[in-house]
Nucleic acid binder design. Structure first.
Lengths: 308, 308
DNA sequence: TCAGCTTACGGCTCACGTAACAATA
DNA sequence: TATTGTTACGTGAGCCGTAAGCTGA
């Protein structure tokens, strides 16, 4: 067995079981990839792929497991190369961050600024996606770090670090009647049309569960992955908005009034995660440090946590 | 980079940094291994080994980390091969168990018997060692599974499964005065010479801590790694013995009297552990099952636990 | 008939082994 | 001087690419 066989295997698995596409991605010809797969299957003594005629159509049960170990083997060899790069050159390289829109827009800017001042020659990439996509990106080494609230921390192939806690705030136009209440309750919230996040993003599951447990049904008139979209529709009078506390920015959102809702919903924890077999280069470790330092300044609306 | 370079690296690291010995182990000539290392260091761009003149004398700091990832990469590729073997042949193979003397002598026999009836063609090996050695054997894939009470469960590169709980019993010659007591206390134990386990084995640390916390100092006249040695010296009248409960066997130890001491010491948990990146073949998984089933029959003296 | 995988074959790279050399205890 | 590691070089295995063959949609 050798590493090229494993990278070929992964490429084919990632390209819908198309050897041609995998070959293209690897800058090789079809036949070479085909041979790698054949040799690998011959050595292992089992079919990794399910074939319909000559065409590949999926992974066999054993193949699924094999791909898993192949990913990890490759991750480990990549780690070795990264160690080398860390020794030679401590200031060049790249940093690929996976983040949801909320993180990228409301949390990352000061971190990124501090980081790029410290490492001006490091190429920074922000990859956006849903929490589930971010987990996959981290596992498949499409990003170095993923930052979000959901889905991380559960996957066995990721190391996750708790970063900061947050809860929700209500935003509304200044003339909205709900702002006259001295105490906002879940029942009160149900009386108004609500704009908030879609399922899968920024604590939506926990949000909806809180109503369900109280046997209430909120009127969600619109949901979006993106806090900015929510704000826009609140401004347009579609209803009240319920967003993550860190997404309300006084200087830009002064036309909207906010109210803390942390007495109504469980606290959420945002985490940073990376692949278990991954060696983090010095600047990547430093980014995590800077992130933790920066979010610890958000005390007003959230509590920072230490490493798990 | 390729896998042969990594196996060469590991072989050199495991052979006291001797390229010649590593080459011998790998059935290659010195120069070939030397070249592998050179090429690897060239690609990584760093010295992995510390050299005194031409001779290798140790690992550089980066080298230490590299070796760690190399082990894991190799473990993952081995796992892939094992998956293949599982597919082809479900009844042949081998099973290498690491265990302390106590486990091998008092717990394993019925498990081994059941296992070898089920898989008569599987070669069974029992590797004995201290808990620390067993951890290393598991990490370096010298055994498939390690079974003991100490040291497992802490190491980040091992998966550990809790198996059964046990405590200690006192053994003494029938004429020993301590047997006249209705309740044995730590103070009473301190009045007599004691024979028990050495540090590092079978709960000795926890045993000694119990006395220390009570500000007592037991008279340990002899300590051994091996319950049989302890019994021999108790029989010879050197003192009372304090051993693990599962090591007292009525049929063979009828010349000694035992007393339960579980009111005096914390309970211990024996665990099974294996390397994280290791794929366990079907028969190896089955061995764990058989082990768990067998120890759950030890209820009289211990409580079985589920998977962690 | 086309898209996609496999097989056959030639060329080239690269790794192993032999052997000479260098250096350390 | 014996042991151990490096360097030089020839040979052979193995991998890539070209090209032809095969197979199902």
């Amino acid at each position: 067995m050798n590493l090229k066989q494993l990278t070929s295997l992964i490429a084919v698995a990632e390209n819908n079981f198309s050897i041609s596409h995998a070959a293209e991605q690897l800058h090789m010809v079809q036949s070479a990839v085909s041979q790698q797969i054949s040799r690998l299957e011959e050595e292992i003594g089992t079919q990794i792929f399910i074939r319909k005629g000559k065409r590949l159509s999926g992974l066999s049960p054993a193949g699924e497991e094999i791909v898993h170990y192949a990913y990890r083997a490759i991750a480990n060899t990549n780690s070795i190369l990264e160690i080398g790069r860390d020794q030679i050159n401590q200031v060049e390289g790249k940093l690929r961050i996976g983040a949801t829109h909320t993180q990228a827009q409301y949390i990352l800017p000061p971190v990124i600024k501090a980081f790029s001042q410290e490492y001006p020659n490091i190429e920074l990439q922000i990859h956006q996606g849903s929490p589930k996509q971010l987990v996959n990106k981290a596992i498949h080494d499409e990003v170095d770090l993923s930052i979000c609230t959901e889905a991380l921390g559960e996957h066995p192939d990721l190391v996750s670090i708790s970063s900061y806690r947050w809860n929700r705030v209500l935003i509304a136009r200044p003339d909205h009647p709900i702002l006259n209440l001295s105490l906002i309750t879940l029942e009160q919230l149900c009386k108004h049309p609500i704009v908030t996040y879609v399922y899968g993003f920024t604590g939506r599951e926990v949000f909806s569960d809180a109503f369900k447990q109280a046997l209430l049904k909120p009127k969600i008139v619109l949901s979006a992955a993106d806090t900015d979209v929510i704000k826009t529709y609140v401004r347009n009078g579609m209803g009240i908005g319920i967003i993550a506390s860190m997404a309300y920015k006084k200087q830009h959102d002064s036309d909207l009034v906010f109210r803390d809702l942390s007495h109504l919903f469980p606290w959420e924890t945002t985490k940073i995660a990376y692949q278990k077999d991954k060696y983090l280069r010095i600047h990547q470790q430093r980014f995590i440090e800077l992130f933790q330092l920066t979010v610890s300044d958000l005390k007003a609306v959230s509590k920072p946590l230490g490493y798990q």
